[in-house]
Design a binder for these strands. Structure first.
Ligand SMILES: [Mn+2]
Ligand SMILES: [Mn+2]
Ligand SMILES: [Zn+2]
Ligand SMILES: [Zn+2]
Lengths: 140, 140
DNA sequence: TTTTTATTGCAACATAGTTGCATTGAATCA
DNA sequence: TGATTCAATGCAACTATGTTGCAATAAAAA
């Protein structure tokens, strides 16, 4: 199985012309380690150093603006972040309603939406909710 | 053009075995009047009486649970609610990034997603972001 | 009319995120 | 090396979106 290169926070940041700070590195490292979309809290617990919430969110903002990461909004109180890997930027997300995990889903052609005349599409968000393999198979 | 019946808060509530309270009625009336998805604030300004935020959110919760309305989460700080009309429950939403409006979009077949073995789909959310006819045509 | 049940309002709390301002720290320039 | 500069950090305060506990009130049922 071929592992993708660039799975290194410093390199990632540098390749996007961003300074390599402790907080940014930590966020990226957590995401690369876990390989799942993570909430602020989940990233925080994964980290050894503790940053102020402001710093954290400013890092998120920077990483989002430079498209190193993306954000998955499941609910106003349920937000996850994931790295942008080599996959196409338009992809779906699967949310497991039982174990609360979010995974990026490749290979989905976004639906062609019959919108009225004059509408312009910038971006399409597709979130699939259900049970992941683990939660669906290992029934209690 | 055929107008759908039941466009009346009291009837709507009653047909779903829900008590007809002032807050519930107000929320539904606002949505039926405007015919767009509305935020809490937008509904509030549309109403004459002012309810406590708790009452408001408890009404939302009840209406959501009984499927009289549905919720469109655009961002943690950008939430809209819309009535469930006769349209199918699975439908897409269009969000105009300029005028901030959300409209329910009918006639979209949700994409068939090639998920790995064992995954179970409960629901699919599709949000299309861009410019509405008005904002796209009337360029500044 | 009395009892029961549901709704409302208030206070307090939680999560997600932003802004202003002062401080620190890391590069860059001389 | 030292001074300048600019970005990153931390703290305080604030916004939006909810939720929970508890007491008061209003509506339905007995
Ligand atoms: Mn993703
Ligand atoms: Mn809708
Ligand atoms: Zn799961
Ligand atoms: Zn618009």
């Amino acid at each position: 199985m071929i592992e993708h290169q660039n799975t290194n926070p410093q390199e990632l940041l540098h390749s996007h012309q961003l300074k390599s700070t402790a907080c940014r590195e930590g966020i990226l490292q957590a995401m690369l380690d876990v390989r799942e979309a993570l909430s602020e809290h989940e990233i925080r617990t994964h980290l050894s150093v503790d940053f102020d919430r402001t710093t954290f969110y400013r890092s998120f903002k920077t990483l989002l603006e430079h498209q190193l990461i993306h954000k998955i909004v499941l609910d106003p109180q349920k937000i996850k972040y994931a790295v942008h890997t080599h996959r196409g930027s338009e992809h779906a997300h699967f949310y497991c309603e039982q174990c609360d995990s979010v995974r990026c889903v490749d290979g989905i052609h976004m639906p062609v939406v019959p919108l009225p005349e004059g509408y312009l599409i910038h971006h399409t968000d597709l979130i699939i909710r259900g049970l992941c393999h683990n939660c669906n198979t290992n029934v209690s």
